[in-house]
Amino acid sequence: MNWTGILSIYRYEMTRFFRTLLQSFVSPVLSTSLYFVVFGAAIGSRIEEVDGVDYGAFIVPGLIMLSVMTQSTTNASFGIYFPKFIGTIYELLSAPINFLEIVIGYVGAAATKALFIGLVILGTSSLFVDLHIAHPLAMILFLVLTCLSFALMGFIIGIWAGNFEQLQLVPLLIVTPLVFLGGSFYSISMLPPIWQKITLFNPVVYLISGFRWSFFGQSDVPVAISLAAIFGFTLLCLGVIWWIFRTGWRIRS
């Protein structure tokens, strides 16, 4: 393994993040505060509790998931698409580094950035609501796995995308709607019976439900299924990446 090479990619990507640290830090704090104002104050005044949890606290896991999923996807997709777009990818392809090592470098950096933002949102949230995390280790595990799996998916999108529109397409048209409809701001039990069934086809439901369980000890679907879902999704992304690695799809002619 070319660990120095992996570390170089990781460090290079993180430098970009730190160069815009203020922006990286301020934007999630601001958007979280806005969500609390809109959802917490406006809607929260009508819904006091969901399954015995204060509504303000109830939306925290969903808020974190919303940012973490979109951030890790866009960070990783942009990270690998940008060298393709400006041509600097020639260096990655001619270096003594294999595709797996390139993936570790880019996905690792994208996941780290998303994790950082997730923790910033958690910190900001604790200023607005009283938070107790029931299972901290499980919370971290869900958070890390979500960052990783969505960064893997983002990497695939970055390889696939032929232009900037395509780069935005999946996060905008698929990830964001799935997260919003995946119970970020409500419990599935609040939906009409038919939608309770339909919503189970949304994979994000399982992730948010599991993550919420780590906070409050209660969930819409069993935790084991949530864990299986996130592992399954990670494996699926790894499988696609392995295939790209084997065929050199869209990278090496």
């Binding site: 120095t4 460090r11 290079y12 600097t88 990655l92």
Partner: peptide
């Protein structure tokens, strides 16, 4: 063609290349 990241400093981009090659 000139393939360079426009916002990256000369030192960083050259250091990156060395690291990428495992040195």
């Amino acid at each position: 063609d000139i393939f360079l990241e426009p916002f990256e400093k000369v030192w960083n981009t050259v250091r990156f290349s060395r690291g990428l090659f495992g040195k």
